[in-house]
Design a protein around this nucleic acid. Structure first.
Length: 270
DNA sequence: ATGTCCACCTGCTGGC
DNA sequence: TGCCAGCAGGTGGACA
């Protein structure tokens, strides 16, 4: 689930519950995700007021009036459950607001993370220091992408997944954007012409915007205890569609490398 | 530095 | 019906 659009949707879904609310209870139920929670998480967060909610790359940020920002990452299987009712074994962090709303960070595979960082020092936070530009910002352009790819021989697919080049894309949206731009996933990053770089940047932005819009239309799902999310999956052009017909009629191919699947069309993507 | 692979962890699906 | 291999949205470390 959690690439940039899903994290953006998550943060937007948390706003009505958390914005300007004070946390009256903070409970770490199983604090060993990818990294351990900060040992003083509960102490520093209990009684704090949430002053703003933001996203950076695939991270969600909750600013507090204590000068700390809670930084969460959803890994592969993370999500926030709003007013979950019965708690399960994968509800690792539990928050309760002064309005009596409850939030559970649920992450079965435990690839996610939770950190507490001084808001003023976020730029120096290790996970953020090396991140590339936001793909929806002006800093992500044919100019900047071209500069980042210059001389690189690795496949463009792998380079777009590198968060230092552009921050927020994952396996689904890279496959989708490359198909939309007509670029073969195995093409060397440094060997993409300028006009095609422009198309690629536009495709990345377009697919992310469309996915955020689709997520936004189902925001209410975040309030459901079962938490099933449909979202953008119905609009995938190639991802998860091996053997189905591409728009050109040719069968969509799947290739596995380094443990990840790439979906593409050999005719539309060169 | 760059490119590539693998481990981390749990749950689900499909084939036998 | 039951078991097991294979696969899953991410990241970071090890290696050549």
């Amino acid at each position: 689930m959690p690439e940039l659009p899903e994290v953006e949707t998550t943060v937007r879904g948390l706003v009505p519950v958390l914005e300007a609310r004070r946390l009256v209870s903070v409970e770490a139920r199983r604090p060993d995700l990818r990294r351990a929670f900060p040992v003083d998480l509960r102490q520093r967060l209990t009684g704090a007021r949430i002053t703003g909610l933001r996203r950076r790359a695939k991270y969600g940020l909750l600013d507090t009036d204590r000068g700390d920002t809670l930084v969460f990452h959803l890994g592969m299987s993370g999500r926030w459950r709003i007013d979950p009712g019965e708690l399960g074994p994968h509800d690792h962090l539990l928050l309760e607001t002064d309005e009596g709303r409850r939030l559970a960070l649920n992450d079965p595979r435990r690839f996610g993370s939770v950190d507490l960082v001084a808001t003023a020092a976020l730029d120096d936070y290790e996970a953020f220091a090396k991140l590339g530009p936001e793909p929806l910002g002006e800093a992500f352009s044919a100019d900047t992408l071209g500069a980042a790819l210059r001389g690189r021989s690795a496949p463009i697919k792998a380079l777009l997944l590198d968060q230092r080049i552009v921050a927020g894309l994952g396996n689904i949206y890279v496959c989708e954007a490359l198909h939309m731009a007509g670029i073969a996933p195995g093409r060397a990053g440094g060997r993409i012409s300028r006009p095609r770089l422009t198309r690629l940047v536009e495709a990345v932005k377009a697919v992310l915007v469309a996915a955020i819009e689709a997520g936004g239309s189902t925001l209410r799902d975040y309030a459901r205890p079962d938490g099933e999310l449909g979202y953008f999956s119905r609009q995938w052009r190639v991802y998860g569609r091996e053997g189905e017909a591409c728009g050109c009629g040719a069968p969509i191919r799947r290739r596995a490398e380094g443990g990840r699947s790439t979906f593409f069309c050999t005719f539309c993507q060169r």
